[in-house]
Design a protein around this nucleic acid. Structure first.
Lengths: 401, 401
DNA sequence: ATTTAATTCGTTAAGTGAACGAACTAATAA
DNA sequence: TTATTAGTTCGTTCACTTAACGAATTAAAT
C-alpha cells in the first residue's frame, strides 16, 4: 500500500517509451505530465536496470538536441505456444512487443505427457533460434483447443489431442521450464491476437468464430475476454440453430455443430449426391459451379448467418471474424455477407481472419506482453499498466501458413 | 497526475466506513493497512467535511474504548427514476446506499416533453418526501425503455412512451433539475439492481430477460454491463428462434418477439381456440388446467428455453433472471426449468426476479451510488473506488408492486 | 477493595520516498 | 547574438511510515 506512486510513474514512463520510443526525456515529461526531473530519475533507473537504452539524438529543430531512449527488447521475453491437434508452434515475444521467429513441428500423436515433453523442448528450441537467452524468459503462454481448468491445470474437452485431460499440463510444463505457465483456450487467444494486430484492430467488441472440425468462438466485450461462469462462453456449437435442439444428438454434439461441423458438411453432401468427399473438395466444387456442392455451402452459410444473428442479438459486436479451416475460406465469408442482411436486423461486419493460423500465437504474445510488464513494472498495482504497442501483422503474412 | 495517493487513501477509508460502519479508526487502520495517523487525519477531514460523524463508542472489550464513525447518509444523494410506459416512479438514494421512500404516478399519456416535465416534478416531490434537501442532490439516474443515445440525449426505440425520440430527454431534465442526468436502459438497470440486492446477488455473470410486450435482456459479464457496439446488446427479440428468421416480418419485429411477445401469445391462443383473450387470462386458464392455454404456455416456455440456450452458448452466465409482466410469472419459470435440460447442455439457474418492478429503481440507486462516490471522493482516479454496500431487498417486498 | 498487568486507542514526533517548481547550465537553429 | 529547447541541481512540500507514549479500559492478583 505504501508508496505506490513511484510504481505508477514508472509504468507511465515505460508505457511512453514502449509506445512512442525512441523518445526524449523532455517529450516523455510533456506527454505524461510528470516533471522533467522525475522522468530523468526514472529513465536513468530503467537504463541502469537494463530495460531501456540510449538510441540516438533528436535533430533539425530549434534548441538543444535531446538523447532519445528505446526499450531493450532482449532484456526479457515470454515464450508463446500454439498447441494444435496437428501442429505445435512456438515463438518468443520480447519486451518491446516484437514476435520473433517461430518454430513448428507436427504434434506428437502419442498425446498426453509426450505432448507436454515435446512442448517443453520446442520452447527451448524457439529461444535458441533467437537472440534471447533462456534466462531472460519470464513466463510461457500456451494456447490449446479445449477448456483449461485453472484449479487442476488439466485441459477438458480437448478433442484433437489425446489424454490432455489426464495430465496437469500447466504444472508439468512449469516443472520442465522453470517459469510460470499460463494455459489458455486457443480461440480466446485468437480473438486477442486479431484485436491487437489482425482484422479486429482497434475494435473493442469482437467475436472470433472458428469453424472447423467443431465450432467455437472467442468473445471480447469492451476489450476484455468473456470466459463465462463455467468457462463455457463461446460454445456456439450448442446454439439452437440448424438441427432441432430437442433431439438427443443435438444435446450431445450441439445442434449447430451437427450441421456446420466437418462431419455435418460431408453428410449433407452425401445425402444430396450419394458421393463421399472431404470438405475442401466440396468447397472447391462449389467454386467451380457444382450445384449440389454450392447448395451445401449455401446451407452452411445460411446456418452460420443465423448463428451470427444469435450472437449479435446477444452481445452486439462491431465485427465478427471468421477463422478455422472452414471459416477462413473467403468464399464462405462472401456467401454469409450476402445472406446475413436477410435475417440479422442489427448490422455487423463479417471478415475472415487476417492472421490465419498465427492468430493464437499473436494473442499469446499479447497476453504475455501484458503479464510480463505487469510483473516487472506495475506489480499488480491497479491503474498502473503498460498497454500493447502498435505492431503490424506483416511478419505473419510473409511466413507460410 | 501529481499526489493522487491521498485520493486513494481517502477512498479506501470511505469504503471501510460505508461497508463496515460504525467502525473505529483503529479498526480502519488494521483492515486497510494504512497507519493509524493517516487514518486519523483522513477521518477528521471527512468529519469536518460533513461526510462522516461520530456514532458512539465501543464497549466490553479489553483496552481503551474507541469512538466509532458512520457515514452521514443525508450529506448527499441521488434521485433515481424508473420511467415506464404506464408508471413513473422516483426515489432518493443517499450516500450510505439506502434507498428512501419512493413516489409513483401514472405516466402522462401525452408523452415527449410532457413526460420530461412530469419526471422533473416528481424528482422534486421525491426529495420533499425524504429528509434530504434538493441542494444535497448531486445527480439523477433515469431508467427508461429504449436505447438512450449518449451523443444526442434522445431515446430511440421507445415503444411505450410517445415522442421520446424527438426530445433531448437528458438535457431537458438537466435544465429542469440543475444536476447531471444519466439516462440508461431500464433492463440494464434491472440487471444491476438484481445483482446488487436481488436474485443475482453475488454473481458476476448474469442475464436478466424481461418478457412482456416485447422481449429484451440486460447482460452482465464479470460484473460489468454489456452494452454492445451499437448499444444493441440484449435485443433477444431478434434471436433466430421461434419463427423463421428469414421472413420479412421476423426481420422487422424479430423472430422470437413475434412468438413470445404479448401479441404472439394472444395470436397463438386465437389460432388454437378461435377465442380472444389477454395474456393474464391465458396464463390463468393454463394454471386451471385448460389444455389449449396450457399448450400455448408450454410453447412459450419452449421458445424461451431455446432463447436461454442461445444466450448461454454465447456468454455462459451463472444465472438467468426472468422479469417483465410475462416473465416474472413463477409458473412460466417452472415450465422453462422443466424444458431447459432437454435443449441446453450447459447448466444454468433460472429464477424469477426478486425485486419485481423495483429492479430498475434499485439498479439506478446502485449506479448513482457509484457515480456519486466517484464524484466526491475518487474523482476518476483509476483503482480508487467505493463499492456498493450490502443491503437487503426487504423494503421493496414490503411495498406494493 | 485496591493495586498491578495487559491491552487497545489515538496522538505526537521523527524520518523517508516521491514529486514538484525554480534556478541554472548546455546545446543548437535562426 | 538571441531565442529556444534539453537536462541537472537544489530546496520544498506532501503523504505516508515507524516508534514512542499518554490515556482509557478490562482482567487478574493481592
Amino acid at each position: 500500500m505504501a508508496h505506490s506512486s513511484r510504481r505508477l510513474s514508472l509504468c507511465t514512463v515505460m508505457q511512453s517509451i514502449v509506445h512512442d520510443g525512441p523518445i526524449s526525456r523532455a517529450r516523455i515529461a510533456r506527454e505524461t505530465g510528470l516533471s522533467k526531473q522525475t522522468v530523468g530519475e526514472i529513465v536513468s533507473g530503467l537504463e541502469i536496470g537494463g530495460w531501456v537504452r540510449e538510441k540516438g539524438r533528436t535533430r533539425g529543430h530549434v534548441g538543444r538536441t535531446a538523447t532519445t531512449y528505446e526499450t531493450v527488447g532482449t532484456a526479457a521475453g515470454v515464450v508463446v505456444v500454439d498447441l494444435g491437434g496437428t501442429k505445435l508452434r512456438a515463438a518468443v515475444a520480447d519486451l518491446a512487443g516484437n514476435i520473433l521467429d517461430d518454430v513448428v513441428e507436427p504434434t506428437d500423436p502419442a498425446g498426453g505427457a509426450a505432448v507436454a515433453r515435446q512442448t517443453a523442448r520446442l520452447c527451448r528450441v524457439a529461444t535458441e533460434r533467437n537472440a534471447i537467452g533462456w534466462d531472460r524468459i519470464k513466463l510461457a503462454i500456451v494456447g490449446v483447443a479445449g477448456v483449461p481448468d485453472a484449479s487442476t491445470g488439466a485441459v477438458r474437452l480437448s478433442p484433437n489431442i489425446r489424454g490432455l485431460d489426464r495430465i496437469n499440463l500447466r504444472s508439468s510444463l512449469e516443472d520442465a521450464l522453470g517459469v510460470d505457465v499460463y494455459v489458455e483456450n486457443d480461440v480466446n487467444l485468437a480473438i486477442i491476437g486479431e484485436q491487437w494486430i489482425g482484422s479486429g484492430a482497434g475494435e473493442k467488441d469482437l467475436v472470433f468464430i472458428a469453424v472447423g472440425t467443431g465450432i467455437g468462438a472467442g468473445i471480447m466485450i469492451g476489450g476484455t475476454l468473456v470466459r463465462g461462469a463455467a468457462q463455457s462462453a463461446g460454445e456456439l456449437g450448442y446454439l439452437p440453430v440448424g438441427a432441432d435442439p430437442f433431439e438427443a444428438e443435438s444435446l450431445r454434439t450441439g445442434a449447430l455443430e451437427r450441421v456446420v461441423g466437418t462431419i455435418g458438411i460431408i453428410r449433407r453432401y452425401r445425402d444430396r449426391t450419394g458421393e463421399e468427399a472431404d470438405v475442401p473438395a466440396i468447397f472447391d466444387a462449389a467454386t467451380r459451379g457444382n450445384l449440389a456442392a454450392s447448395a451445401v455451402v449455401d446451407e452452411t452459410a445460411s446456418h452460420l448467418a443465423c448463428a451470427i444473428t444469435a450472437v449479435c442479438a446477444t452481445v452486439n459486436p462491431a465485427k465478427v471474424i471468421l477463422g478455422g479451416s472452414i471459416g477462413s475460406r473467403p468464399d464462405l465469408a462472401r456467401r454469409i455477407r450476402t445472406i446475413l442482411p436477410q435475417c440479422a436486423p442489427i448490422p455487423v461486419e463479417v471478415e475472415t481472419s487476417l492472421l490465419g493460423s498465427y492468430a493464437a500465437l499473436a494473442g499469446g504474445a499479447a497476453v504475455g506482453f501484458e503479464k510480463i510488464h505487469a510483473m516487472l513494472f506495475s506489480d499488480g498495482h491497479p491503474g498502473a499498466l503498460v498497454s500493447l504497442p502498435r505492431q503490424d501483422a506483416n511478419r505473419f503474412r510473409l511466413t507460410g501458413q
